[in-house]
Design a binder for these strands. Structure first.
Length: 771
RNA sequence: GGGCGAUUAGCUCAGCUGGCUAGAGUACCUGCUUGACAUGCAGGGGGUCACUGGUUCAAGUCCAGUAUCGCCCACCA
């Protein structure tokens, strides 16, 4: 209980700090009374259905934990060991039969030597007996299909108590198993002089002694998969003991169907294959543990040896269910922790009582977890849900990637490579950590996590904070909620940001629906920073920034900017809220808002009217012009403070767009005077750039670095020429023209035209420099 | 032995339905005390998309195979 307070408390603290959205009033503990009752009830019901049984079997035994563990708790690792070829003398002859084993120390537990029935090499020995070295026991030489004649010597020592397959072979031949190990992995009294010594020490010693007696034919190195305990890393011993098991096949079948029929859907879908494979090859689940911590097995044994019956019950029975006598003893073992975990979806809702919660909340919509516990937990929850409630506990399962350290290793206590989440949050902030981790983790992909990467989220939060600060400041005492659409006059920039925003809403919402959280986060990051902040907030500065005397260029225009900016910001806050709950709530509260908390306010919707491809197209063009001018300025080493003039030769829509947005473009490109028109001429010495086939010049008398400009233009021309070549090639291809989609063909044609013009004009610009 | 993932800029990775003239963050170079933000702004260099074949008008994207790394499963001593 102390342990629970300490570590359970830490996890809860981390959850609160991370801002997890949790109903804290429903916190329960796996060992509390209602949950214990659920566990006992499940056991009793399965027992009564004949799905739980007790028996002697070879199980995975951990000599350090001193308990049986399930197959899932065993880890396998490719490893190298020695394969010992040991000669067993054949009784009554001078001959030997040589067996191959990796564990010579278990020879004391041998009860037979087996060969394949069709193996001619050994046919004459079947029926004879072999003499076990040291043990002075004779054991039969038998034949069994199980033996692989091609492995080792083709003769197999049979040790039923310490090998699951040998156990089966032994059973077929009516051979009594001999246990030679103590629970702690030392040899037992069966082994005479070796009793009390560790299995690995004995292995070495036996090998030496066999060699001394000429009974060790040879050793060879052998690759095998080493089985270790997932908790303590000790080498697992197959060990014959009495344990409780759950019969899995009947439970697995409906659970397998539920996933096949998409009643339960996995994200990413590939895990359904893993699940399906495991479910089809499932083996019975060993649920008893020889530990002190856990739910006791709800089984009582009659104290009367004449009766000896067992009573299985949820509540401790007063008397034996068979003979009615008292003095019952409860089973000493406890249950595998997963035996309570698999009931989690129902036990937390009050099962086995038919509670209101259970009726209302079962089944739930989805589960988030790691793929490393798909068998331990997910599969078993589905089985338990169907078994006890008649339907699966959830519709969707999201499998997160696993967070690894920068070297790609799994976070583990022994490596000490897992950062303390609280410390990371202290350094970067909870929102930053949340955002960064989601941003970095594509659906189901493991991520290499370095705390330093949380800068991404931290800087982003800072950016958002400052953008909000600007909006709040410029909003002055305007309350955008009270402004009617009719009071607004949307400019191109406004239409553009609303359109981009609508796209962003669509994108984020769609990605969230399919659990592509990282893509949703990236879309938000991109939109917020590089469209809303970098462009929109810059574009509207001339409109809503008051002069020194507090006056605005145009009241209606300023109002429109205020309303659009604050609406888009409000939308961003909502979309971002699941990723960064703290900072978004804080900002939202500081701005005019409706409702108590952003958490429960409505999720943004993209209004159809906002999608405006014309505005997007036009602004994109203007951005290209601005970028071209910035590029020229930068390459010509013109300081940002230096205001220059610009000349653009343009006509048609381009001309209109430029004319209409002079005031917006000026500050962005730091251009003072614009000369725009179809007849505009290169102004003598100038830097030039071609945007969509139109020439843009910056007159630079006395300022231009001719050599630098020539290099820049040449580089530009090279790139355009190679693009041009590719495009030409495509358009000369008859198959392309006839088979490609018409819009694709048209796009290539348009591109060709623009590129052609660009090349011509770049060449002209280069010539002009020569003069 | 089976299954699954990964292989794209120096590094960490996006790129879902094939149209990419291949992106982001970071690192790097240049210039900026531009009245929200130097946790910032602007500009720039940097990639034969592991390899080999195939399908297609068109492949980072689809198919087959190969290689390397990683994970999971499997009762061959």
């Amino acid at each position: 209980m102390e342990w629970k307070e300490q570590y359970g408390g830490l996890i809860l603290k981390q959850m609160r700090r991370l801002g997890e959205s949790v109903d804290w009033s429903r916190e329960v503990f796996t060992m509390d009374e209602p949950r214990s009752r659920a566990v006992a009830t499940a056991f009793v019901r399965l027992y009564e259905k004949g799905l739980i049984y007790r028996g002697h079997y070879v199980v995975n035994w951990c000599p350090r934990c001193l308990t049986a563990i399930s197959d899932e708790e065993v880890e396998h690792e490719e490893s190298e060991t020695l394969l010992y070829h040991i000669k067993y003398p054949v009784a009554g002859t001078e001959k030997h039969i040589t067996v191959a084993t990796t564990r010579p120390e278990t020879l004391f537990g041998d009860v037979a030597v087996a060969v394949h029935p069709k193996d001619r090499r050994y046919a004459h020995l079947v029926g004879k007996t072999a003499i076990l070295p040291f043990a002075r026991r004779e054991i039969p030489i038998i034949s069994d299909e199980y033996v692989d004649p091609k492995f080792g010597t083709g003769a197999l020592k049979i040790t039923p108590a310490h090998d699951a397959n040998d156990f089966e072979v032994g059973k077929r031949h009516g051979l009594e198993p001999v246990i030679v190990l103590n629970p702690d992995g030392t040899l037992n009294a069966q082994t005479g002089d070796f009793a009390g010594e560790d299995r690995f020490a004995v292995r070495k010693k036996i090998a030496e002694m066999l060699a001394d007696r000429g009974l060790l034919a040879r050793t060879e190195s052998h690759r095998y998969s080493k089985a270790t305990c997932s908790r303590c890393d000790s080498v697992i011993e197959p060990y014959l003991s009495r344990q409780w098991f759950v019969k899995m096949k009947p439970l697995a079948e409906p659970a397998l169907q539920a996933v096949k029929k998409k009643q339960v859907k996995f994200f990413p879908a590939r895990w359904t294959k893993t699940y399906g494979h495991w479910m089809t090859h499932i083996r019975d689940w060993c649920i008893s543990r020889q530990l002190w911590w856990g739910h006791r097995i709800p089984v009582w044994y009659c104290g009367d040896s004449a009766c000896g019956a067992l009573t299985v019950a949820v509540d401790p029975p007063a008397a034996c269910g068979t003979c009615g006598k008292g003095g019952l003893m409860q089973d000493e073992d406890v249950l595998d922790t997963w035996f309570s975990s698999w009931l989690w979806p129902i036990s937390t809702l009050g099962w086995p009582e038919e509670t209101a919660d259970l009726k209302r909340f079962y089944p739930s919509t989805f589960l988030v977890t790691g793929p490393d516990i798909i068998f331990f937990w997910v599969a078993r929850m589905i089985m338990a849900g169907i078994e006890f409630r008649g339907e699966p506990p959830f519709a969707h399962v999201l499998f997160n990637g696993i967070v690894r350290d920068p070297q790609g290793r799994k976070m583990s206590k022994s490596l000490g490579n897992s950062p303390d989440p609280i410390a990371v949050m202290d350094e970067y902030g909870a929102d930053a950590v949340r955002f960064t981790v989601v941003y970095l983790a594509p659906l189901g992909q493991d991520i290499l996590f370095d705390a330093k990467r949380c800068e991404t989220g931290k800087f982003f939060a800072n950016k958002l904070w400052n953008a909000a600060r600007l909006v709040k400041m410029r909003l002055a005492d305007t309350d955008p909620r009270k402004v009617k659409d009719g009071q607004l006059a949307l400019t191109l920039a406004d239409r553009w940001i609303l359109s981009r925003y609508a796209n962003c809403v669509k994108d984020v919402t769609r990605n969230l629906k399919t659990y592509r959280l990282s893509e949703a986060a990236q879309a938000l990051y991109q939109f917020t920073w590089h469209e809303f902040c970098d462009w929109y907030l810059e574009m509207i500065k001339p409109r809503w920034t008051p002069a020194a005397d507090g006056s605005l260029p145009d009241e209606k225009d300023a109002l429109t900017a205020r309303v659009v900016a604050s609406r888009v910001l409000d939308g961003i806050l909502h979309l971002l809220h699941p990723f960064m709950p703290f900072v978004t709530e804080e900002i939202w509260q500081a701005l005019p808002h409706t409702g108590e908390t952003i958490t429960t306010s409505a999720w943004p919707k993209a209004k159809k009217a906002w999608f405006d491809s014309e505005a997007e197209e036009q602004v994109q063009f203007l951005q290209e012009v601005v970028t071209a001018i910035r590029n020229m300025r930068s390459e010509m080493n013109l300081p940002p403070a230096k205001v220059v003039n610009a000349v653009v030769r343009a006509d048609g829509d381009a001309l209109k767009a430029l004319e209409a947005n002079r005031a917006t473009l000026g500050p962005l490109a730091r251009v003072g005077e614009w000369t725009i028109g179809p007849e505009a001429q290169r102004p003598g010495v100038a830097a030039s750039s071609i945007v969509r086939g139109m020439e843009v010049w910056i007159p630079l008398v006395g300022l231009i670095d001719v050599a630098a400009e020539r290099i820049r233009l040449t580089r530009e021309a090279d790139k355009v020429l190679s693009d041009l070549e590719g495009t030409k090639k495509k358009l000369m291809n008859q198959d392309f023209l006839s088979k490609a989609r018409p819009d694709v063909v048209q796009r290539e044609k348009d591109r060709l035209e623009v590129l052609d013009q660009t090349v011509v004009k770049l060449k002209k610009a280069l010539e002009a420099l020569r003069a």
